[in-house]
Structure formats: structure tokens, C-alpha cells
Simulated scan of single mutants.
Amino acid sequence: MADARSAPESLPPAFLEFLQENGLDPMMYSMVDTIPRYIRLKPGMEPHIPEIQSELKCHLNKVSWLPDFYAIPPQVQIASSMAYQQGKIYGIDAASGAAVLALDVQPGEHVLDLCAAPGAKLCMLADMLGGRGSLTGVDVAKHRLAACRTMLQKYSLGDRCRLFVADGTSFSILPVNSSLGNGEGSTCHKDNGSTLSEWTSKRSWKDRQKSKKVLVDAECTHDGSIKHIQKFEFWGWKTLDRRVLDAERTDDLLHLQLRLLTNGFKLLKTGGSLVYSTCSLTVAQNENVVQQFLCKHSSAELQKIDSADSWPCRSGSIFKTLRFDPATSQTSGLFVAKFTKLQI
């Protein structure tokens, strides 16, 4: 059980109690200044590393276990750099990159990101597809999905992805060769090959295409992100009470996570792979959701993530699930589970 007496002084008592109830060590929130910041280098930009290092005034330390990822000091800001503005680098935590890599996306596959915002994982998926197959990004918040579109265009990936404003718990996929502006969405905007549309259901289930790979990086309490929790010092701890500690909101989140996972699996082809992840470290939002899902879906089976043999993470309390955390992994906290759909 976590020892609240050893916690950073800035954390409020209610949050310390939350950590203690979930067996989490509050000391990880004192590591915010020691955990590296991670960036992903756009493929093909390796020759620009010396100039990027010169501009950022730091060394880019290659992450040995994650292709195209580099660690930089946590205090380095990239948003104002030319490398970022010109689409050579973007920020994404290494643990989040691992969740994407766990899907083992191959060129030519049909991939669905059911909780796509803010867009870094979507860019990584688009690069992995290599301009072949299809990629669909979904998010319930229009302004957040618009940010995804901007990011895809910035990295010249706008023509490789369709974006839909939709509830991920009920979304279903349009056939790849369908026109995105043929009445399937209530609004449709095109800009440099990238499309953002509000999705509405007008097709039968059997007419809808299923994906070979599905990513469900579900909404959660974000307690595993020490940088996110640190922001509450500026937002106010009452905001944390509402977003993280409120029991009614937590219950709603658990229901949402299970529904997202269930719908993502429904949209998965037989033999395909689905990765479920959250940046919470609580058992309720991770192993418990996985266990509930497996009990209700006999065609779902947890799958070993082969590439994880070299990852700096530990096993979850359910075999084949993984956990990243600041102390073990030098990353934000992240839970990862990979499923396959069996032929029943």
C-alpha cells in the first residue's frame, strides 16, 4: 500500500487517499523533472538530427527499444522550434508509442483508431501503413479531431486518413471506397486531402467494413501521466476532484471504457488484433475492464506482444498485459492489453 507520508507536499489529501486506495506510490509524482521528454522523428528525417540538436540545444538520445523515438531533457520545449513547425518531429510519450507498435501494423491493412485525438498516435499509424491500406480516426470532440487533421496535414499525412466526429461506442466503418461526402455525414470539410466529417449511421451492419487492426486508447482519469497531474497545480485541485476523484465520473468512465472496447472488438475482423490502453494506473480501469470484457466475449483472446520482450515495462496482474510506469520505464504510466478475434 502506498505511503502517503512520503508523498510530495503539493499533492492534496484527497488525491493521496485515491492513490493509497489503488496501491499507487505517490512518490512517482516527484519524478516529473527526471522523466525524459520523448519525440518521434518523422521517417526519413535522420540526416537532419544534427541541426535539430543544434536548434533544441540538447542531444537526441535514441530510444533503443522503439524505432524513430528519441529522449530529450524534460524541460526542453519543442513547439516553437523550426523542426516541429516544419513537421520533422512531434512529441509523443514512449509508452504511447509502444501501444501503437503493439498493433504490428503492416502496409495495406485497414486500421481504426477509435479514440484518435490529439493525433500523435494517428500520425505514427499512418507512417506504419506507408501509404497503403486505410486509416480511420474517430473522436467524439470536434475541436480535438480538428487538431488531429491539422497535425496530419503538417506531417504530409492528410491524404492517408479519414476522420470522423463520432461516439466511439457506436461508430461503425464506412467502406473504404465510399464517398465521404455522399450524405453519410452531416458535415464534411476538405482541406489538402484531409477530410473531417460528422458520422451518422445509414448502413446495415453487414455492409460495413471491418478493420484488421483497432486501437482503443480509452479516456481515463490520466493518473498515470505525472505531467498531466502536475497541471492541476495551475488548474486548481478542485478541478482534479471533479475529473479524477469524483466517484460518479469514475463509474461513468469504467462504463465508457468497456463500451469502447466492446465496439472496437465488434469492428475487428476475425484474426485481427485490437490494443486497449489507458494512461491510468488503477486496476479498475485496466485489468478489471479486460476481465469483464473477456467474460462477455468468448471469441476474444489475449495475445502476447512479442516486441515487448525488449521493452522496459512489467507484467500486469493478468498474464500477457503490460504496465509502463515512471519508475520502471522512465515514461508516463500506461496499461496495454492486446486481443485477437477467434473464429467461433
Rank of each mutant, 00 (worst) to 15 (best):
Q153W: 02
G91M: 12
L125S: 04
L103K: 11
L103Y: 05
L163H: 06
V176M: 04
L152G: 02
L135H: 05
C123W: 02
Q86S: 13
N177M: 00
D159G: 08
G158S: 14
V105D: 05
P118H: 12
H110P: 00
L163N: 06
G108A: 12
Q85V: 06
A102R: 02
A117P: 03
I89F: 08
L103P: 01
G168C: 10
A116V: 07
R132K: 15
V105G: 04
L145F: 03
R160M: 09
G130C: 13
K142L: 13
Q106V: 13
A147S: 14
V111Y: 03
E184W: 07
S178K: 05
L152E: 02
C148G: 04
G130F: 11
M128I: 13
T187C: 09
G168N: 08
G87V: 09
S186G: 07
R160N: 13
Q106M: 14
Y84E: 10
S170A: 15
D93N: 12
L135V: 06
Y84A: 13
P107W: 09
V111Q: 01
L103I: 09
G87R: 11
K154P: 07
D113P: 09
G168S: 13
L157G: 04
G158W: 03
A102E: 07
G87I: 09
V176L: 03
G181H: 05
M151H: 13
T150P: 00
N182E: 13
L112W: 03
V165Q: 11
G91E: 15
C148M: 07
L101C: 04
C123F: 01
A166E: 01
C123A: 15
R160H: 08
L174T: 00
C161G: 02
C161D: 08
A126F: 01
H110N: 10
V111C: 03
G158K: 01
K142T: 11
Q85N: 14
L174I: 00
K142E: 15
G185D: 06
N182P: 00
L152S: 02
G130I: 03
L157E: 06
C148K: 01
K88C: 12
I92V: 10
G119R: 09
A147N: 14
R149K: 14
M82K: 15
L112Q: 04
G131A: 12
S186L: 06
A117M: 03
E184V: 05
K121Q: 09
S179I: 00
T169S: 12
R144F: 04
K88A: 10
D127H: 14
D127C: 14
L145M: 13
F171M: 11
K121A: 07
L157A: 01
V138Y: 02
G130H: 11
F171Y: 15
S178T: 11
L163C: 10
L101R: 12
L152K: 04
I92Y: 02
A120P: 11
A116D: 08
